[in-house]
Design a protein around this nucleic acid. Sequence first.
RNA 1: GUCCCUGUAGUUCAACGGACAGAACAAGAGCCUUCUAAGCUCUAGAUGGAGGUUCGAUUCCUCCCAGGGGCACCA
Length: 562
Amino acid sequence: MEEKIKNLIKNALKNLGIKGADFIVEHPDDLKNGDYSTNVALIYGSILKFEKGHPREFAKKIKQEMMKNLPLEINRVEIALTGFINFRLSKEFFADRLQTILKEKDKFGKNKKLKGQKIMVEYTDPNPFKEFHIGHLMSNTVGEVISRLVEWNGAEVKRANYQGDVGIHVAKAIWGILQKKDQSIDSIQSSAQAYIQGVTAYEENEKAKEEIKEINKKIYNRSDSEINKIYNQGKKLSLEHFEKIYKKLGTKFDFYFFESEVGDEGKEIVEEFLNKEVFKKSDGAIIFEGEKYGLHTRVFLNSEGLPTYEAKELGLVKNKYKKYKFDTSISVTGNEINEYFKVLLKVMEFVLPNLAKKIKHISHGMLRLPTGKMGSRTGNVITGESLIQDMEKLALDKIKSSNREFTEKEIKEISEIISVGAIKYSILKQSIGKDIIFDFKKSLSFEGDSGPYLQYSYVRALSVTEKSEIKSSSKNFTNKNIELEHLLYRFPKVIERAMNNYAPNYVVTYLIELAKSFNNFYNNSKIIGSPEESYYLALTKAFAQVLKNGLTVLSIKTPEKM
RNA sequence: GUCCCUGUAGUUCAACGGACAGAACAAGAGCCUUCUAAGCUCUAGAUGGAGGUUCGAUUCCUCCCAGGGGCACCA
């Protein structure tokens, strides 16, 4: 449709003897400005300085030309005071799109823009021996939606999770475990506690610091059988724990990468390029001098000869490509590592030039507590699990206070769907790079601009369609102006735009507007029993379908009841 | 100090260089003997400051102010 309008304008310009095509055709923010609008008159009106000089005069000329062969889908063309030309679509067009939605069902909104592309998305990246905190929850939520957006745009997607199973943080945790009487761990909590103990000792106690460094080496070499035993036990415990959380969140990874598996390869790459003007020795460590490129200087191999995060990342990229010949590899991380990632990309241009071009970094903001920075080092963390649990409790109370009857099983399912939905929504509703000041009471709501609002709207729509006795049809459309019609057909465009900008919040904003529009319709028009029942039903079904598809992209589940 | 990011109603967030800057929560006034009130309708309320580019700036540029993050062997 957009193309049709563009061509219409181009032809009109051509007939007026004007070249160039720098104008925009878009959906206006405000529905009262029509379904599509163009700024063509504003641009050319002022540049060409028409006799009267006003964009409106020019707009009238363009309109005259366009009216000569107006497509059937366009009902009216209007010129706004400001000079915008607004197009209003016909009832026939809306009815036709409604039919498409009901026919395509779960596929409505998908496109093939990225067909044939193989894309790997890496996200979540929690570290064994440490807590899965709300930062990981954020990375998981964002990464999963990016994956789904890429899928909806036609690409083949593999999900990857990269986990830090070696490094000084693990050594700290194991040191803490060794201080315990039984020298073993039975839960993820005790492992995290041991880690905090190790962190404190590392900073305050010189002897412990040396011991931890020693343990770190032993973990790398796997030279100490006792440490290996604790290590294996702790790692297994952590990974099983994470897996439970992924299940709840709706993520299924295709590949798991571990730092322990990529370190050697990273080290080899660094050593290979040591004397080729890429890396340099300095104070016993091997570094990359980023200052030449306006970046930071980073250590790749420390003075112990062990690879740091940066070197491991080089090995990781190579490993990823070995497993999956991707066209693009997207890494989703918190924005605190933005600067490091720039250094990495620069280094990759030298050492892995073919892969460097395929790497994309998307960073999201951090979850911050009103009290200050959250850190597992200080123990000042909210775990992903406890957050979900607290939310479930709230959802449970809310369900029980309603008058509806549910079985125990239903209550459990619904409260989980709603609480996870509320959390995800609060992460996705704002633009991706911004920090979230996380306040349990304020950030997570069941009302208004929230996940449960969308879920509730869906359930409501379902409930109506189930009660009707007659068949829905998009044939007998009415002449009444229903806002919902103007929004439903836009969904595919929203998905496309969200993908192009890696902006899940575009989907969120659209869905809220859509649901609001439906709720307004619902409150103002009786659906069942109205003379327009069959068409209203079609509208309601189409709404439920589009909302469900949108929530699916956002990885938010839709309950059948609530 | 330096680099990057962010400053929008009381609060939490929107706004693909365009039309009177949108919501939600909180505040106030209404709507359930009618399809699920986790809902709907109405009222009040905002672009940190100063310049610049543009027909047009919350959006781009410069400076200032405020907050956050990064800046060598953690990730």
